[in-house]
Write a protein that binds this DNA or RNA. Sequence first.
DNA 1: ATGTTC
Length: 489
Amino acid sequence: MNWNGPLLKMNDFRFEIPSNYQGVQNNLHMKTSGVIYATNGMIKSIRMDYAPEQVANVTMLPGIVGKSLAMPDIHWGYGFPIGGVAAMDEENGVISPGGVGYDINCGVRLLRTNLHFTDLDSQKIQHLVDEMFINVPSGLGSKAKVHLNRKQLDDVLKLGAKWAIENGYGWKEDPEYIEEHGCLDYADISKVSNEAKQRGAPQLGSLGAGNHFLEIQKVDEIYDESAAKAFGIQNIGQIMVMIHTGSRGFGHQVCTDHLRVLGQAVKKYNIWLPDRQLACAPVTSKEGQDYLKAMACAANFAWCNRQMIVHWVRESFGKILHQCAEDLDMGIVYDVCHNIAKLEEHEIEGKKKKVYVHRKGATRSFGPDKQEVPLRYRDVGQPVLIPGDMGTESYLLRGTKESEETFGSTCHGAGRVMSRTQAVHRYRGEQIINQLKQKGIYAHPASWKVMAEEAPDAYKNVSEVVNVTHGAGISSKVVKLLPLGVVKG
DNA sequence: ATGTTC
């Protein structure tokens, strides 16, 4: 099914769905226009999965501020497109789980090391990957080594990454380099179901499946030397570790639970929607606030999860290289989430205003001088982490002042072009492993099926995606990273 | 993404 609505070229990197578009059923009344960040060459595949209709649908939500936006890695999602960004008014707006996604606070964390590519031969890489595979439980339904009681889980949900550090999983300075310091303090455990807690408790400290991964990477190219230096990157060949995971079954259950409640709220508050999947509630309503407080619990779960994984990564490097992580300088460059909604202050038409920014498959990209950016990076902007698909390049970018046009947001990754089912039919896991091997990448998968689902050809080219956001000015390239070894969920 | 089918 191809989307045939209007996508008017504004310039090299922006296409508009004008607000007079009436929709497939000829009854849409857009409150504002939609903008998709893309190049000419990307438009064909963007039309293919119908996601632009979802960009138009989002413009019809009550209290939307500015435009309905989509990043170049846009594809079809539940209600909102993946790659979608929408800001809602602090008083008259709505909050929607579809604008966040099922994997609440899915995100990326980057660790640096003082190792150089030439310090590690292929056997060492293999040992490191195998050791991390042992220490970080991976795969669908993977369970953690740590068993939390109910009180401990409640503390995790309230404290996020801070809980992990207080319990020995990390360094004192780690939270400084995590978005929101790894904790949303309005998290309220009474808004989370027992079922979510039951699912979540055994999964804290596990990687999961799908496109989640743990990668040993090397710096391949430096585009912005002063920003790279600020982020602790000195030279080409420097070894880095990237972690991509989220809130596991816990966030999934929080989303499911609150979608049910907000489906009812739509009727109660008499909200007209073009698509039931856009279920939402006024931000000021009990239902809306309850979702925000539960979402914060899931966000904290994910930050704690990534923190524990970092600890085991440091331990694994220490063990295999017979050196402690401190001596290897394995500090956190940054941790960003790409599935979340938060109240933030932005400059809108020259005035500062607080809005609820939904980012679904979109990354925060705050520019220099914003107080949310760590002091150490304040002059260059926030580090932005963009994972590629398995076996391809990833990027470290910096946020820009120009990203105010997207409420401080940019893309989040490559974005699928082929469904999981299609990919499983077309590829075999063993064949993908061999392909990677030929490129000098060692992969340790938890499942052959996921390996096939995540075949590089099932994804858009991440470099094209990043070049659009760089060209449009909403984030700026700092470093390109290439994988050497990968633990795949 | 996900105890891949509430």
